[in-house]
Nucleic acid binder design. Structure first.
Lengths: 223, 223
DNA sequence: TGTACATCAGTGAACGCGCGTTCACTGATGTAC
DNA sequence: TGTACATCAGTGAACGCGCGTTCACTGATGTAC
């Protein structure tokens, strides 16, 4: 399921993959792994969560997948590509969650803004490792275009939501600024949460309340 | 100067240190270094900036200080302690900057809140490595009590400022919540800035404006 | 002022480690005839 | 249906590397007499 999202280019072979997988169930312990690529991605994601993006190691991922340390290089260019795969997948899933959470609420309602913030922070606290990976390209130099593009389109989405709250169908400068304020806020809230900077749960109120409070102070309810 | 802040316990020997240092200027290339400890801290800070907290290495710091790799262990327990030293020093300097920047403005004025935010973000963009080090104890397990205490007292300071804006002399629940909102905001703003998540300077307005805007929306001007 | 000595900040060599990546290889698979 | 062969996903051993930390040591310094 996850693979369908990540590797959109091989979606067409999904049926084949399932068949292969079924076959594997029956003829256990084969030389060819069958689905190593996605299993390595899973291991990478797990490690990123457990040890943080910076302490991820290819070797350990191999150990978890029960495979030699040379195996990944049949599927990925290098270590960075494995991490990028996980980051992009995270971006996509976060976007999907946003769309899903926003859907029930009518256009232009503040509830949609709140929903976006809720997903953002929830994602961060649920998958802090991946979240960090997504938003911290800390001078590694190796920035990923894809990742930036996904981030940008997400930001545009928020801007559009703000515009709708103002009863606009197109984004104005005011919307850009407000969307930016909202984003900064949930971004900071996320990092404060996962870094435990709020020692002993110093967050003075619950997530839902603080999101509502901020939304109220920044965007109006349309019409 | 920096050492005076960091190593408060040895401040009394400041004069000795200066004399030693002067002597060193004259009798160059000595076996005993004279001021290795603070020089190692400087090297650590520089490396944290250049490569990020996670890519810092003791060996490289030694190379920079022109000293064998065993030397640091005469001054620090281990690698973690070197980093902690830099983090705590950063915390202290950030606090000092806050006090200085707030000073010119009258109590209870929104300008003080804005000043706090300005220092916060400016510190992050000026020393992104140290900033990350200060606020990201990413599951290393080795949390530093001192660091937490400094963070907590800073948070309390902000709360007090918010209280004063409401004309109070003691912190109410409302102040806690508002201070938390403000903190989240500048924290997120800082990370967005240093992670370059705002690709091609996507920040839709300048720092001063956005800080003023947020302050206006969260705290009143007293009386 | 000169000498003996304790102190301690430095050296440099060594350790064991885990890492990312490469290489020639091997064995399973799918396909053409 | 059976055989020959190309493909390719895996192996396992090896590489060079930089790391954090330790150890016995050495040489400069400050102090007591």
């Amino acid at each position: 399921m996850l693979e369908t999202l990540t590797l959109t280019s091989i979606t067409f072979s999904e049926k084949d993959w399932i068949m292969k997988n079924v076959k594997e169930q029956t003829t256990r312990k084969r030389y060819h792994h069958g689905d190593l690529r996605s299993q390595l991605i899973d291991a990478t994601r797990a490690l990123v969560e457990e040890r943080g993006p910076d302490n991820f190691s290819v070797s350990e991922a191999c150990r978890r997948a029960g495979v030699s340390t040379a195996a990944p290089y049949k599927h990925f260019k290098d270590k960075a590509e494995m991490l990028r795969e996980v980051a992009v997948d995270g971006m996509v899933r976060q976007s999907e969650q946003m769309l899903a959470e926003v859907a029930p609420h009518p256009d232009g309602s503040r509830a949609r803004i709140i929903a976006l913030g809720r997903v953002y922070v929830r994602f961060a606290t649920t998958e802090p490792g991946v979240f960090r990976l997504m938003f911290t390209w800390s001078g590694d130099g190796e920035e990923d275009e894809n990742l930036h593009a996904l981030g940008d389109s997400k930001f545009e989405f928020v801007q559009m939501e703000v515009a709708k709250c103002h009863g606009r169908t197109t984004i104005a400068q005011e919307d850009r600024e407000k969307a930016f304020m909202l984003w900064s806020f949930v971004h900071g809230l996320s990092f404060l949460s996962i870094d435990g900077a709020l020692s002993d749960n110093k967050m003075p109120t619950d997530l839902e309340t603080v999101l509502a409070e901020i939304a109220k102070r920044i965007v109006p309810e349309a019409r």
